[in-house]
Design a protein around this nucleic acid. Structure first.
Lengths: 198, 198
DNA sequence: TGTTTTTTACTCAAATTTGAGTAAAATAGC
DNA sequence: GCTATTTTACTCAAATTTGAGTAAAAAACA
């Protein structure tokens, strides 16, 4: 999925070897947002070479004996096309912002509310810390980063602020125990669902 | 990942066969938020049966000849523990709200700004439509749904509202062409990154 | 009543991701 | 100068996801 986009995007800047791609992702703190496992990256690089999206620009021999050489890759013309396809494909993707709490919420009433409150509080604290970090980073880099990268940071900040407000509401209902309540009116809901079908 | 949580969560309500799980996910419109492929669901069900998280409650013979029977599954005690582990595991997950534009933004300057503007506009429209839909659904169901499920809907609504405001900013920069600008000061950025390391 | 479409209910190979290694070289600490 | 840790640079098997089928039964339509 987006690991190829990340790799090709970085190769648009300049030639790199796979480990350098991995490093750059870490250096720019993208790994917090995008979770790229080493294995996926090397797999994607292999695929892209096979598909002719990238090619060896230079092979650096490594002193060690039975160790593989480093290959510096360059993006090809075909790769640039593929990059744009992936870029636009990503822009065309339509699923809305997703929070890790989402899959848990429909079932949260089966859990312990006190424990839920603890988790919510921890998330809230992490979220607030992130907000401060993002503000500082944006302040620091806004004159140097390209607009797109800046919008990414601003997006993370704004979504985090929304997250904070929303988490406070969730936390309040966890602390009051309201999250443990079962459906107020299962019959009414069933009725609704039936009406929905017809 | 969360497909097991969804399946077990639904089996907490009542016994179901796999296709019924799939159906319920659709009926409640969760498939829009959670993307569960058929294959993953059946795979997860197999795994969970092997692991003793669920067991056959009833096998309904199917008239067809060489067709497999339907198995209705029931969650076991071990399954209930696993369910709670998955629930709390999900609540403990820490990556922040994610938007499909995120992986594209750092590289958006390599794309065509007019095309980018089109994509942004389409997302904005989808987002605004979603906001209205969510408002209506919340209005309709707020008295019937359990609190957790309601917080999910409210979360989607709030994140969508933030998304709308943010997309407007992105769109403005796409339309003005600012998104196509390269890094304003690559040297300054390099300088920053170096300082960052030390 | 016969035909077409949709729904029910899966299966499976191929693609991809994950998580856990491996092992040399560089660096840090004493 | 020696040892311990960290970093560089991957590899690989096993787990999981994906996408594309399959085929009967039910519903819709003419």
């Amino acid at each position: 999925m987006s690991v190829k986009l990340l790799a090709l995007g970085l190769l648009m800047e300049r030639d790199r070897h796979p480990y350098e791609i991995r490093q750059t992702i870490k250096d720019r703190n993208w790994h917090v947002t995008f979770r790229v496992r080493d294995g996926s990256l090397y797999y994607a690089v292999d695929q892209m070479r096979e598909d002719g999206l990238i090619e060896a620009a230079e092979v650096i021999p490594v002193p060690g004996d039975n160790r593989p050489d480093k290959t510096v890759y360059r993006i090809t013309e075909k790769g640039k096309e593929a990059f744009l396809d992936l870029l636009y494909g990503q822009l065309g993707e339509s699923h809305y912002p997703f929070h890790p709490f989402f899959p848990a919420l429909p079932f949260i009433r089966h859990g312990d509310t006190a424990l839920t409150a603890e988790f919510a509080l921890r998330q809230l604290e992490a979220c607030e810390a992130r907000i401060e970090r993002m503000k500082a980073v944006i302040e620091l880099k806004q004159d140097y980063l390209p607009k797109g990268a800046l919008h990414l940071l601003r997006g993370i900040l704004r979504f985090s602020e929304t997250e904070r407000d929303w988490l406070k509401d969730v936390l309040a209902d966890a602390e009051s125990g309201a999250l443990g309540d079962p459906c107020w009116s299962p019959e009414g809901l069933l009725e609704l669902e039936k009406r929905n079908k017809n």
